[in-house]
Design a protein around this nucleic acid. Sequence first.
DNA 1: TGTGGCAGGGAACTGAGTTCCCTGTTCGAT
DNA 2: ATCGAACAGGGAACTCAGTTCCCTGCCACA
Lengths: 241, 241
Amino acid sequence: MNEAPGRREPADATAVRPPMRDALVGAAFQLFLERGYEETTVDDIVALAGVGRRSFFRYFPSKEDVVFPDHERCLADMTAFLEEEADVQDPVQRVCDAARLVLRMYAENPTFSVQRYRLTKKVPGLRAYELSVVWRYERALAEYLRRRPAGARADTLRADVVAAAVVAAHNNALRSWLRSDGTKDAEAAVDQALGYVQSTFGSAPAEPARTEAEDVVVVVSRRGAPMWRVVQEIESAFARD
Amino acid sequence: MNEAPGRREPADATAVRPPMRDALVGAAFQLFLERGYEETTVDDIVALAGVGRRSFFRYFPSKEDVVFPDHERCLADMTAFLEEEADVQDPVQRVCDAARLVLRMYAENPTFSVQRYRLTKKVPGLRAYELSVVWRYERALAEYLRRRPAGARADTLRADVVAAAVVAAHNNALRSWLRSDGTKDAEAAVDQALGYVQSTFGSAPAEPARTEAEDVVVVVSRRGAPMWRVVQEIESAFARD
DNA sequence: TGTGGCAGGGAACTGAGTTCCCTGTTCGAT
DNA sequence: ATCGAACAGGGAACTCAGTTCCCTGCCACA
Protein backbone atom coordinates (compact mmCIF):
# COMPACT_ATOMS: atom_id res chain seq x y z
CA MET A 1 0.00 0.00 0.00
CA ASN A 2 2.94 2.33 0.43
CA GLU A 3 3.56 3.87 -2.94
CA ALA A 4 7.19 4.48 -2.08
CA PRO A 5 8.58 2.84 1.02
CA GLY A 6 10.95 4.79 3.18
CA ARG A 7 9.89 8.13 1.69
CA ARG A 8 10.57 11.30 3.61
CA GLU A 9 8.88 14.61 2.94
CA PRO A 10 11.43 17.06 1.53
CA ALA A 11 11.13 19.62 4.33
CA ASP A 12 8.09 21.53 3.21
CA ALA A 13 7.31 24.99 4.55
CA THR A 14 4.70 23.54 6.92
CA ALA A 15 6.94 20.74 8.07
CA VAL A 16 6.74 21.66 11.74
CA ARG A 17 3.19 20.38 12.05
CA PRO A 18 3.16 16.62 11.80
CA PRO A 19 2.25 15.96 8.18
CA MET A 20 0.82 12.56 8.88
CA ARG A 21 -1.82 14.00 11.18
CA ASP A 22 -3.04 16.37 8.49
CA ALA A 23 -3.00 13.58 5.95
CA LEU A 24 -5.21 11.50 8.19
CA VAL A 25 -7.66 14.36 8.73
CA GLY A 26 -7.80 14.96 4.99
CA ALA A 27 -8.36 11.33 4.12
CA ALA A 28 -10.95 10.96 6.85
CA PHE A 29 -13.02 13.95 5.76
CA GLN A 30 -12.83 12.95 2.13
CA LEU A 31 -14.35 9.59 2.99
CA PHE A 32 -16.80 10.98 5.55
CA LEU A 33 -18.20 13.41 3.01
CA GLU A 34 -18.54 11.02 0.12
CA ARG A 35 -19.62 7.96 2.09
CA GLY A 36 -20.77 9.05 5.54
CA TYR A 37 -19.15 8.84 8.93
CA GLU A 38 -20.46 5.52 10.14
CA GLU A 39 -20.00 3.92 6.74
CA THR A 40 -16.28 4.72 6.91
CA THR A 41 -14.02 2.47 8.94
CA VAL A 42 -10.69 3.40 10.37
CA ASP A 43 -9.14 0.86 8.04
CA ASP A 44 -10.60 2.76 5.10
CA ILE A 45 -9.00 5.97 6.36
CA VAL A 46 -5.56 4.56 6.93
CA ALA A 47 -5.68 2.75 3.60
CA LEU A 48 -6.43 6.00 1.80
CA ALA A 49 -3.79 7.88 3.77
CA GLY A 50 -1.31 5.09 3.08
CA VAL A 51 -0.33 4.61 6.71
CA GLY A 52 -0.71 1.88 9.28
CA ARG A 53 -3.79 1.45 11.39
CA ARG A 54 -1.76 1.76 14.55
CA SER A 55 -0.57 5.21 13.53
CA PHE A 56 -4.11 6.50 13.36
CA PHE A 57 -4.65 5.80 17.02
CA ARG A 58 -1.29 7.30 17.83
CA TYR A 59 -2.52 10.68 16.65
CA PHE A 60 -6.19 10.39 17.54
CA PRO A 61 -7.35 8.51 20.62
CA SER A 62 -10.61 7.66 18.89
CA LYS A 63 -12.26 7.81 15.52
CA GLU A 64 -14.32 10.78 16.70
CA ASP A 65 -11.24 12.83 17.53
CA VAL A 66 -10.28 13.10 13.88
CA VAL A 67 -13.41 15.18 13.34
CA PHE A 68 -12.31 17.77 15.92
CA PRO A 69 -8.58 17.95 15.35
CA ASP A 70 -8.00 21.41 16.84
CA HIS A 71 -10.32 21.59 19.82
CA GLU A 72 -7.68 20.34 22.20
CA ARG A 73 -5.37 23.17 21.24
CA CYS A 74 -8.20 25.68 21.43
CA LEU A 75 -9.10 24.52 24.90
CA ALA A 76 -5.51 24.97 25.97
CA ASP A 77 -5.53 28.46 24.46
CA MET A 78 -8.65 29.31 26.41
CA THR A 79 -7.33 28.14 29.75
CA ALA A 80 -4.10 30.01 29.11
CA PHE A 81 -6.08 33.13 28.25
CA LEU A 82 -8.06 32.84 31.45
CA GLU A 83 -4.99 32.29 33.56
CA GLU A 84 -2.88 35.12 32.23
CA GLU A 85 -2.64 37.99 34.65
CA ALA A 86 -4.49 40.95 33.28
CA ASP A 87 -6.32 43.63 35.19
CA VAL A 88 -9.86 42.53 34.66
CA GLN A 89 -12.57 44.96 35.55
CA ASP A 90 -15.44 42.72 34.49
CA PRO A 91 -14.99 38.94 34.69
CA VAL A 92 -18.07 38.43 32.53
CA GLN A 93 -16.45 40.48 29.83
CA ARG A 94 -13.33 38.38 30.17
CA VAL A 95 -15.28 35.16 29.85
CA CYS A 96 -17.04 36.46 26.76
CA ASP A 97 -13.68 37.24 25.22
CA ALA A 98 -12.55 33.71 26.01
CA ALA A 99 -15.59 32.40 24.17
CA ARG A 100 -14.64 34.51 21.18
CA LEU A 101 -11.44 32.47 20.92
CA VAL A 102 -13.56 29.44 20.04
CA LEU A 103 -15.47 31.31 17.39
CA ARG A 104 -12.23 32.54 15.93
CA MET A 105 -11.01 28.97 15.60
CA TYR A 106 -14.14 28.06 13.68
CA ALA A 107 -13.88 31.16 11.51
CA GLU A 108 -10.27 30.39 10.60
CA ASN A 109 -11.47 27.54 8.43
CA PRO A 110 -15.01 28.26 7.26
CA THR A 111 -15.42 25.46 4.74
CA PHE A 112 -13.99 22.89 7.10
CA SER A 113 -16.23 24.12 9.93
CA VAL A 114 -19.33 23.99 7.76
CA GLN A 115 -18.55 20.47 6.58
CA ARG A 116 -18.02 19.35 10.15
CA TYR A 117 -21.25 21.02 11.20
CA ARG A 118 -23.17 19.00 8.63
CA LEU A 119 -21.54 15.84 9.90
CA THR A 120 -22.24 16.47 13.56
CA LYS A 121 -25.85 17.32 12.76
CA LYS A 122 -26.38 13.89 11.22
CA VAL A 123 -24.33 11.58 13.42
CA PRO A 124 -25.47 11.23 17.05
CA GLY A 125 -22.11 9.94 18.16
CA LEU A 126 -20.38 13.05 16.90
CA ARG A 127 -22.97 15.25 18.52
CA ALA A 128 -22.27 13.55 21.84
CA TYR A 129 -18.57 14.07 21.35
CA GLU A 130 -19.08 17.73 20.58
CA LEU A 131 -21.19 18.11 23.70
CA SER A 132 -18.37 16.78 25.82
CA VAL A 133 -15.99 19.26 24.21
CA VAL A 134 -18.39 22.14 24.81
CA TRP A 135 -18.77 20.97 28.36
CA ARG A 136 -15.06 21.32 28.91
CA TYR A 137 -15.14 24.88 27.59
CA GLU A 138 -18.04 25.65 29.88
CA ARG A 139 -16.23 24.16 32.85
CA ALA A 140 -13.16 26.27 32.12
CA LEU A 141 -15.30 29.42 32.09
CA ALA A 142 -17.16 28.44 35.23
CA GLU A 143 -13.95 27.63 37.12
CA TYR A 144 -12.60 31.04 36.19
CA LEU A 145 -15.74 32.78 37.39
CA ARG A 146 -15.64 30.82 40.63
CA ARG A 147 -12.18 32.13 41.29
CA ARG A 148 -13.25 35.70 40.54
CA PRO A 149 -16.49 36.64 42.22
CA ALA A 150 -18.34 38.80 39.74
CA GLY A 151 -21.10 40.85 41.30
CA ALA A 152 -20.90 40.51 45.04
CA ARG A 153 -21.48 36.90 45.99
CA ALA A 154 -18.84 34.40 45.06
CA ASP A 155 -21.06 31.36 45.03
CA THR A 156 -20.79 28.66 42.43
CA LEU A 157 -24.36 29.15 41.27
CA ARG A 158 -23.81 32.45 39.55
CA ALA A 159 -20.59 31.19 38.02
CA ASP A 160 -22.26 28.12 36.56
CA VAL A 161 -25.23 30.04 35.24
CA VAL A 162 -23.14 32.77 33.64
CA ALA A 163 -20.82 30.22 32.04
CA ALA A 164 -23.78 28.32 30.67
CA ALA A 165 -25.34 31.51 29.35
CA VAL A 166 -22.13 32.56 27.64
CA VAL A 167 -21.75 29.17 26.00
CA ALA A 168 -25.39 29.09 24.93
CA ALA A 169 -25.16 32.55 23.40
CA HIS A 170 -21.91 31.72 21.67
CA ASN A 171 -23.34 28.51 20.26
CA ASN A 172 -26.49 30.26 19.13
CA ALA A 173 -24.45 32.69 17.09
CA LEU A 174 -22.06 30.02 15.90
CA ARG A 175 -24.83 27.75 14.68
CA SER A 176 -26.54 30.59 12.89
CA TRP A 177 -23.27 31.38 11.16
CA LEU A 178 -22.70 27.72 10.27
CA ARG A 179 -26.21 27.41 8.89
CA SER A 180 -25.48 30.34 6.60
CA ASP A 181 -22.57 28.30 5.18
CA GLY A 182 -20.15 30.81 6.59
CA THR A 183 -21.47 33.69 4.53
CA LYS A 184 -22.76 35.87 7.35
CA ASP A 185 -20.47 37.85 9.62
CA ALA A 186 -19.55 35.54 12.45
CA GLU A 187 -17.95 38.19 14.60
CA ALA A 188 -20.98 40.45 14.44
CA ALA A 189 -23.35 37.62 15.30
CA VAL A 190 -21.36 36.53 18.31
CA ASP A 191 -20.91 40.12 19.46
CA GLN A 192 -24.64 40.61 19.44
CA ALA A 193 -25.25 37.35 21.27
CA LEU A 194 -22.62 37.92 23.91
CA GLY A 195 -23.78 41.49 24.26
CA TYR A 196 -27.11 40.15 25.39
CA VAL A 197 -25.43 38.05 28.07
CA GLN A 198 -23.27 40.93 29.20
CA SER A 199 -26.23 43.25 29.46
CA THR A 200 -27.87 40.63 31.65
CA PHE A 201 -24.99 39.54 33.86
CA GLY A 202 -22.10 41.89 33.26
CA SER A 203 -21.12 44.71 35.53
CA ALA A 204 -20.27 46.99 32.62
CA PRO A 205 -22.76 47.89 29.93
CA ALA A 206 -22.49 45.86 26.78
CA GLU A 207 -22.68 48.80 24.44
CA PRO A 208 -20.98 51.34 26.62
CA ALA A 209 -22.47 54.31 24.79
CA ARG A 210 -19.15 56.03 24.94
CA THR A 211 -20.74 59.42 25.23
CA GLU A 212 -19.31 61.63 27.89
CA ALA A 213 -21.84 60.68 30.55
CA GLU A 214 -20.18 57.88 32.49
CA ASP A 215 -21.61 58.72 35.86
CA VAL A 216 -25.22 57.81 35.29
CA VAL A 217 -26.37 54.74 37.13
CA VAL A 218 -29.87 53.39 36.76
CA VAL A 219 -31.17 50.32 38.47
CA VAL A 220 -34.59 49.07 37.55
CA SER A 221 -35.85 46.19 39.59
CA ARG A 222 -38.62 43.92 38.50
CA ARG A 223 -41.66 43.69 40.64
CA GLY A 224 -40.77 41.93 43.85
CA ALA A 225 -37.12 41.45 43.20
CA PRO A 226 -35.39 40.62 46.48
CA MET A 227 -33.71 43.50 48.17
CA TRP A 228 -30.26 41.92 48.21
CA ARG A 229 -30.41 41.85 44.46
CA VAL A 230 -31.18 45.54 44.25
CA VAL A 231 -28.33 46.30 46.60
CA GLN A 232 -26.03 44.10 44.59
CA GLU A 233 -26.90 45.93 41.40
CA ILE A 234 -26.26 49.28 43.01
CA GLU A 235 -22.94 48.15 44.43
CA SER A 236 -21.75 46.63 41.20
CA ALA A 237 -22.87 49.69 39.29
CA PHE A 238 -20.85 51.92 41.57
CA ALA A 239 -17.91 49.57 41.23
CA ARG A 240 -17.79 50.18 37.51
CA ASP A 241 -15.24 52.92 37.74
CA MET B 1 -26.20 -19.64 36.58
CA ASN B 2 -29.95 -20.03 36.21
CA GLU B 3 -31.29 -20.76 39.62
CA ALA B 4 -34.47 -22.15 38.10
CA PRO B 5 -34.85 -22.24 34.35
CA GLY B 6 -38.14 -21.35 32.79
CA ARG B 7 -39.32 -19.57 35.90
CA ARG B 8 -42.11 -17.11 35.69
CA GLU B 9 -42.63 -14.43 38.30
CA PRO B 10 -45.80 -15.21 40.25
CA ALA B 11 -47.58 -11.95 39.42
CA ASP B 12 -45.99 -9.66 41.96
CA ALA B 13 -47.49 -6.28 42.75
CA THR B 14 -44.94 -4.64 40.47
CA ALA B 15 -45.38 -7.17 37.72
CA VAL B 16 -46.44 -4.63 35.12
CA ARG B 17 -42.90 -3.35 34.72
CA PRO B 18 -40.82 -5.86 32.79
CA PRO B 19 -38.97 -7.79 35.48
CA MET B 20 -36.08 -8.68 33.25
CA ARG B 21 -35.21 -5.05 32.72
CA ASP B 22 -34.98 -4.41 36.45
CA ALA B 23 -32.97 -7.57 36.92
CA LEU B 24 -30.46 -6.35 34.34
CA VAL B 25 -30.18 -2.95 35.99
CA GLY B 26 -29.66 -4.60 39.37
CA ALA B 27 -27.03 -7.00 38.12
CA ALA B 28 -25.27 -4.24 36.21
CA PHE B 29 -25.03 -1.89 39.18
CA GLN B 30 -23.91 -4.66 41.49
CA LEU B 31 -20.99 -5.36 39.19
CA PHE B 32 -20.29 -1.72 38.39
CA LEU B 33 -20.01 -0.89 42.07
CA GLU B 34 -17.84 -3.81 43.10
CA ARG B 35 -15.66 -3.94 40.01
CA GLY B 36 -16.00 -0.70 38.07
CA TYR B 37 -17.87 0.18 34.91
CA GLU B 38 -15.20 -0.42 32.32
CA GLU B 39 -14.03 -3.58 34.05
CA THR B 40 -17.50 -5.06 33.67
CA THR B 41 -18.47 -6.54 30.32
CA VAL B 42 -21.97 -7.02 29.06
CA ASP B 43 -21.36 -10.76 29.21
CA ASP B 44 -20.66 -10.44 32.92
CA ILE B 45 -23.97 -8.66 33.42
CA VAL B 46 -26.08 -11.12 31.50
CA ALA B 47 -24.31 -14.02 33.18
CA LEU B 48 -25.17 -12.61 36.62
CA ALA B 49 -28.74 -11.83 35.58
CA GLY B 50 -29.04 -15.29 34.09
CA VAL B 51 -30.30 -14.11 30.71
CA GLY B 52 -28.99 -14.15 27.20
CA ARG B 53 -26.68 -11.51 25.83
CA ARG B 54 -29.14 -10.71 23.09
CA SER B 55 -31.80 -9.81 25.64
CA PHE B 56 -29.61 -7.12 27.18
CA PHE B 57 -29.52 -5.20 23.93
CA ARG B 58 -33.23 -5.75 23.49
CA TYR B 59 -33.87 -3.61 26.57
CA PHE B 60 -30.92 -1.25 26.39
CA PRO B 61 -29.56 -0.01 23.08
CA SER B 62 -26.10 0.31 24.61
CA LYS B 63 -24.18 -0.56 27.73
CA GLU B 64 -24.39 3.05 28.84
CA ASP B 65 -28.18 3.06 28.76
CA VAL B 66 -28.39 0.65 31.65
CA VAL B 67 -26.90 3.35 33.86
CA PHE B 68 -29.72 5.77 33.04
CA PRO B 69 -32.74 3.49 32.87
CA ASP B 70 -35.41 6.13 33.53
CA HIS B 71 -34.19 9.20 31.68
CA GLU B 72 -36.13 8.34 28.57
CA ARG B 73 -39.37 8.23 30.49
CA CYS B 74 -38.50 11.45 32.30
CA LEU B 75 -37.81 13.20 29.04
CA ALA B 76 -41.18 12.09 27.74
CA ASP B 77 -42.80 13.40 30.93
CA MET B 78 -41.11 16.74 30.47
CA THR B 79 -42.18 17.20 26.86
CA ALA B 80 -45.71 16.19 27.80
CA PHE B 81 -45.66 18.70 30.65
CA LEU B 82 -44.51 21.44 28.31
CA GLU B 83 -47.12 20.59 25.71
CA GLU B 84 -50.14 20.39 27.95
CA GLU B 85 -52.40 23.40 27.58
CA ALA B 86 -52.26 25.46 30.71
CA ASP B 87 -52.62 29.19 31.03
CA VAL B 88 -49.04 30.16 31.56
CA GLN B 89 -48.39 33.66 32.76
CA ASP B 90 -44.61 33.26 32.89
CA PRO B 91 -42.91 30.83 30.50
CA VAL B 92 -39.71 31.00 32.55
CA GLN B 93 -41.64 29.80 35.56
CA ARG B 94 -43.07 27.00 33.49
CA VAL B 95 -39.65 25.93 32.29
CA CYS B 96 -38.33 25.96 35.85
CA ASP B 97 -41.19 23.69 36.88
CA ALA B 98 -40.29 21.38 34.02
CA ALA B 99 -36.75 21.20 35.34
CA ARG B 100 -38.10 20.27 38.75
CA LEU B 101 -39.51 17.11 37.17
CA VAL B 102 -35.97 15.94 36.59
CA LEU B 103 -34.94 16.63 40.14
CA ARG B 104 -37.96 14.75 41.37
CA MET B 105 -36.90 11.71 39.38
CA TYR B 106 -33.47 11.81 41.01
CA ALA B 107 -34.98 12.33 44.44
CA GLU B 108 -37.30 9.36 44.06
CA ASN B 109 -34.33 7.05 44.41
CA PRO B 110 -31.62 8.80 46.43
CA THR B 111 -29.26 5.89 46.94
CA PHE B 112 -29.46 4.87 43.31
CA SER B 113 -28.89 8.44 42.19
CA VAL B 114 -25.87 8.85 44.44
CA GLN B 115 -24.34 5.61 43.26
CA ARG B 116 -24.84 6.64 39.67
CA TYR B 117 -23.35 10.05 40.38
CA ARG B 118 -20.18 8.43 41.69
CA LEU B 119 -20.01 6.30 38.56
CA THR B 120 -20.51 9.15 36.11
CA LYS B 121 -17.91 11.22 37.92
CA LYS B 122 -15.28 8.56 37.33
CA VAL B 123 -16.08 7.25 33.85
CA PRO B 124 -15.67 9.73 30.96
CA GLY B 125 -17.90 7.70 28.70
CA LEU B 126 -20.78 7.92 31.14
CA ARG B 127 -20.22 11.62 31.60
CA ALA B 128 -20.50 12.07 27.85
CA TYR B 129 -23.69 10.05 27.79
CA GLU B 130 -25.15 12.13 30.60
CA LEU B 131 -24.25 15.29 28.73
CA SER B 132 -26.21 14.12 25.71
CA VAL B 133 -29.19 13.42 27.95
CA VAL B 134 -28.95 16.83 29.57
CA TRP B 135 -28.68 18.35 26.12
CA ARG B 136 -32.00 16.81 25.16
CA TYR B 137 -33.64 18.28 28.26
CA GLU B 138 -32.16 21.66 27.41
CA ARG B 139 -33.38 21.44 23.83
CA ALA B 140 -36.88 20.62 25.03
CA LEU B 141 -36.90 23.70 27.25
CA ALA B 142 -35.45 25.91 24.54
CA GLU B 143 -37.96 24.72 21.94
CA TYR B 144 -40.76 25.53 24.35
CA LEU B 145 -39.41 29.01 24.97
CA ARG B 146 -39.04 29.60 21.27
CA ARG B 147 -42.69 28.82 20.77
CA ARG B 148 -43.70 31.19 23.57
CA PRO B 149 -41.95 34.51 23.36
CA ALA B 150 -41.21 35.40 26.94
CA GLY B 151 -40.56 39.07 27.55
CA ALA B 152 -40.83 41.03 24.37
CA ARG B 153 -38.38 39.67 21.84
CA ALA B 154 -39.16 36.22 20.50
CA ASP B 155 -35.75 35.46 19.11
CA THR B 156 -34.02 32.17 19.60
CA LEU B 157 -31.15 33.73 21.50
CA ARG B 158 -33.08 34.48 24.63
CA ALA B 159 -34.73 31.06 24.52
CA ASP B 160 -31.38 29.29 24.29
CA VAL B 161 -29.79 31.36 27.03
CA VAL B 162 -32.69 30.96 29.43
CA ALA B 163 -32.84 27.22 28.83
CA ALA B 164 -29.12 26.91 29.42
CA ALA B 165 -29.37 28.99 32.58
CA VAL B 166 -32.22 26.87 33.93
CA VAL B 167 -30.34 23.66 33.23
CA ALA B 168 -27.13 25.03 34.76
CA ALA B 169 -28.94 26.16 37.90
CA HIS B 170 -30.77 22.86 38.19
CA ASN B 171 -27.56 20.90 37.77
CA ASN B 172 -25.76 23.07 40.28
CA ALA B 173 -28.36 22.27 42.90
CA LEU B 174 -28.59 18.64 41.87
CA ARG B 175 -24.85 18.11 42.09
CA SER B 176 -24.68 19.79 45.46
CA TRP B 177 -27.42 17.46 46.67
CA LEU B 178 -25.70 14.41 45.20
CA ARG B 179 -22.41 15.37 46.80
CA SER B 180 -24.18 15.48 50.15
CA ASP B 181 -25.11 11.82 49.56
CA GLY B 182 -28.75 12.81 49.39
CA THR B 183 -28.86 14.14 52.94
CA LYS B 184 -29.58 17.79 52.17
CA ASP B 185 -32.99 18.99 51.04
CA ALA B 186 -32.99 18.66 47.27
CA GLU B 187 -36.18 20.64 46.74
CA ALA B 188 -34.94 23.60 48.74
CA ALA B 189 -31.62 23.66 46.92
CA VAL B 190 -33.22 23.61 43.49
CA ASP B 191 -35.79 26.21 44.53
CA GLN B 192 -33.05 28.57 45.53
CA ALA B 193 -31.08 27.94 42.34
CA LEU B 194 -34.06 28.31 40.04
CA GLY B 195 -35.14 31.36 42.02
CA TYR B 196 -31.93 33.01 40.99
CA VAL B 197 -32.66 32.31 37.34
CA GLN B 198 -36.22 33.51 37.63
CA SER B 199 -35.16 36.70 39.34
CA THR B 200 -32.82 37.28 36.41
CA PHE B 201 -35.00 36.28 33.48
CA GLY B 202 -38.54 35.76 34.73
CA SER B 203 -41.39 38.19 34.44
CA ALA B 204 -42.92 37.20 37.75
CA PRO B 205 -41.16 37.37 41.12
CA ALA B 206 -39.27 34.29 42.20
CA GLU B 207 -39.80 34.85 45.89
CA PRO B 208 -43.08 36.68 46.19
CA ALA B 209 -41.33 39.73 47.54
CA ARG B 210 -42.17 39.99 51.17
CA THR B 211 -40.51 43.37 51.08
CA GLU B 212 -42.71 46.25 50.15
CA ALA B 213 -40.66 46.85 47.02
CA GLU B 214 -43.02 46.91 44.09
CA ASP B 215 -41.30 48.22 41.00
CA VAL B 216 -38.13 49.35 42.62
CA VAL B 217 -36.45 52.01 40.58
CA VAL B 218 -33.20 53.49 41.72
CA VAL B 219 -31.67 56.31 39.81
CA VAL B 220 -28.24 57.51 40.77
CA SER B 221 -27.04 60.34 38.68
CA ARG B 222 -24.37 62.86 39.21
CA ARG B 223 -25.60 66.39 39.29
CA GLY B 224 -25.60 67.76 35.80
CA ALA B 225 -25.79 64.47 33.91
CA PRO B 226 -27.72 65.00 30.71
CA MET B 227 -31.32 63.99 30.96
CA TRP B 228 -31.31 62.09 27.66
CA ARG B 229 -28.67 59.81 29.13
CA VAL B 230 -30.82 59.05 32.16
CA VAL B 231 -33.76 58.27 29.93
CA GLN B 232 -31.59 56.05 27.80
CA GLU B 233 -30.46 54.03 30.81
CA ILE B 234 -34.03 53.65 32.05
CA GLU B 235 -35.22 52.48 28.66
CA SER B 236 -32.46 49.92 28.27
CA ALA B 237 -33.05 48.69 31.81
CA PHE B 238 -36.73 48.21 31.09
CA ALA B 239 -35.93 46.48 27.83
CA ARG B 240 -34.03 43.83 29.73
CA ASP B 241 -37.07 41.61 30.12
C1' DT C 1 -55.37 -28.75 16.21
C1' DG C 2 -52.90 -26.06 13.88
C1' DT C 3 -50.70 -21.53 13.25
C1' DG C 4 -48.94 -17.14 13.72
C1' DG C 5 -47.02 -14.02 16.64
C1' DC C 6 -43.60 -12.99 20.26
C1' DA C 7 -40.21 -13.09 24.05
C1' DG C 8 -35.90 -14.93 24.61
C1' DG C 9 -31.47 -17.41 23.37
C1' DG C 10 -27.37 -18.31 20.89
C1' DA C 11 -23.84 -18.32 17.15
C1' DA C 12 -21.31 -15.63 14.26
C1' DC C 13 -19.93 -11.30 12.36
C1' DT C 14 -18.20 -6.24 12.15
C1' DG C 15 -15.49 -2.73 13.78
C1' DA C 16 -13.29 0.25 17.44
C1' DG C 17 -9.67 0.34 20.43
C1' DT C 18 -5.63 -2.01 22.78
C1' DT C 19 -1.49 -4.85 23.47
C1' DC C 20 2.67 -6.69 22.13
C1' DC C 21 6.36 -6.78 19.38
C1' DC C 22 8.96 -5.85 15.25
C1' DT C 23 11.61 -2.51 11.97
C1' DG C 24 14.17 1.37 10.61
C1' DT C 25 15.91 6.18 11.56
C1' DT C 26 18.01 9.71 14.24
C1' DC C 27 20.85 11.51 17.46
C1' DG C 28 23.84 11.80 21.27
C1' DA C 29 27.53 9.88 24.17
C1' DT C 30 31.79 7.59 24.22
C1' DA D 1 33.06 6.14 13.52
C1' DT D 2 30.23 2.96 16.56
C1' DC D 3 27.10 1.67 19.75
C1' DG D 4 22.87 2.20 21.83
C1' DA D 5 18.87 4.59 23.46
C1' DA D 6 14.82 6.87 21.97
C1' DC D 7 11.39 7.19 18.84
C1' DA D 8 8.19 7.09 14.75
C1' DG D 9 5.79 3.78 12.35
C1' DG D 10 3.92 -0.88 11.11
C1' DG D 11 1.47 -5.07 11.79
C1' DA D 12 -0.66 -9.21 13.94
C1' DA D 13 -3.69 -10.61 17.34
C1' DC D 14 -6.79 -9.76 20.97
C1' DT D 15 -11.06 -7.81 23.70
C1' DC D 16 -15.42 -6.22 23.70
C1' DA D 17 -19.57 -3.53 22.17
C1' DG D 18 -23.12 -3.84 19.09
C1' DT D 19 -25.57 -6.22 15.08
C1' DT D 20 -27.49 -9.86 12.18
C1' DC D 21 -29.54 -14.07 11.46
C1' DC D 22 -31.87 -17.75 12.90
C1' DC D 23 -33.53 -21.01 16.27
C1' DT D 24 -36.72 -22.48 20.24
C1' DG D 25 -40.58 -22.60 23.23
C1' DC D 26 -44.78 -20.47 24.74
C1' DC D 27 -49.23 -18.36 24.43
C1' DA D 28 -53.40 -16.76 22.05
C1' DC D 29 -56.72 -17.28 18.90
C1' DA D 30 -59.20 -19.31 15.15
